[in-house]
Design a protein around this nucleic acid. Sequence first.
DNA 1: AGGCGCCCTTAAGAAAGGCTTAAGAACTCC
DNA 2: GGAGTTCTTAAGCCTTTCTTAAGGGCGCCT
Lengths: 227, 227
Amino acid sequence: MTTAERLALLLIEDDPVLGPLIAELLEPDYAVRLAANGQEGLHLGLTQPWDVMVIDRGLPVMDGVSVIAALRSKGVATPILILTALGDTDQKVQGLDAGANDYMTKPFDAGELAARLRALTRTYSTPDDGGAALVGIGTWELDPASRAVRSVYGHTVSLTAKEAEVLAALAAEPGRVFTRDELLTGHFHPTDQPGVIDTYVHHLRRKISRTVIRTVHGVGYQIGDPT
Amino acid sequence: MTTAERLALLLIEDDPVLGPLIAELLEPDYAVRLAANGQEGLHLGLTQPWDVMVIDRGLPVMDGVSVIAALRSKGVATPILILTALGDTDQKVQGLDAGANDYMTKPFDAGELAARLRALTRTYSTPDDGGAALVGIGTWELDPASRAVRSVYGHTVSLTAKEAEVLAALAAEPGRVFTRDELLTGHFHPTDQPGVIDTYVHHLRRKISRTVIRTVHGVGYQIGDPT
DNA sequence: AGGCGCCCTTAAGAAAGGCTTAAGAACTCC
DNA sequence: GGAGTTCTTAAGCCTTTCTTAAGGGCGCCT
């Protein structure tokens, strides 16, 4: 397989025509899961790790903005692009206020959507001299000091101490593969099982993005570009 | 984790139809507690921390304006929006005079109510020339220097010395996370336990707003968003 | 294609930390 | 000196976080 693994994308769109259409449009580049209503989408968003979400604003029963607010309040920091048929400024502000990372109005250009999604899922890390590091994921940025993941719009989602330790350790040297034991030393109790790391990696993937941390089978974990 | 947790809203409304209706309307965005009369509402308002209150003007037994006046006299500065069926100017002035921060007449537009509540609960911090910082919540402004919370309508609610010290320390550097020990040094007796801080934080939350001060689990407290 | 590890995911108990309350001490202001 | 605040402490309860473990799924190698 020469192609890199496709990113997991959660699409929440109730329109029976537009939903499958967008899904098909994105399928070549993303593993798309379509949720037809807000409740189903919220549940999927909370329980599985995703790389990015595309959410319709005008959903029946549970509004898109409410879904985003609920996800963010539960500590999910995954990048979200919100779609709407209406384009006035108030709604744009409201969507971004609720915790969206980007915003597009229908009808939209397929190329632009693809470009915006690429921007949201682009990861980069800038190692710091002090050992701390700012890790960037699309419009998100991790601040190790306050253990918070912050978007450029000012919304923050906080990590727990251990989650932040694992992420910081990996981010300190982007590209390097760490074994579980290496990630344990210095930060965790001497008695901890290497399996603890697996759990925190899972937490981080669910909270931020499925692909922030790459698994190197038989060795350990890695962050940053695998070039 | 939690940043963007839902805000706690106290709704005091005696109408058996309108009360639950408004509550349901706001539930997606707020954790709503409905009080069916002024006495119950006043008690809840005094004993628990809230982010915002919506109070009906025409309550039986204890009038909405009286409830507001009582809350303010006890040092509660939480933003209050007062609702009424009657829209003449006198009553509007009376409500605001009593200490309300905003005013709406029934029947009202759900979107407008939501917008006004957002405005009342929006927090911001503005660094002062002198190095101190002002923390704003809706139409309130907290001035750590003079230990007072002042509304644009001229009402003030005062804090105690220790409450103001904690607030001032946190507000001096918005976004920075302070440990309990850092908050103790310089201002408190050398013998004081770090747990004192917890108590004052609780006081500030009850008096002003549940979310002015954010807890960073295992580390300390933080004010404002590091924008 | 099959077997063998490794990894993912979940759930649940344990531990730690924070919240809330109440009550006595200290302080202020008449 | 007395009444009313304000300050401080501490204890119990509650929430969050940490840790372990086990089952199922998936990738890798022969």
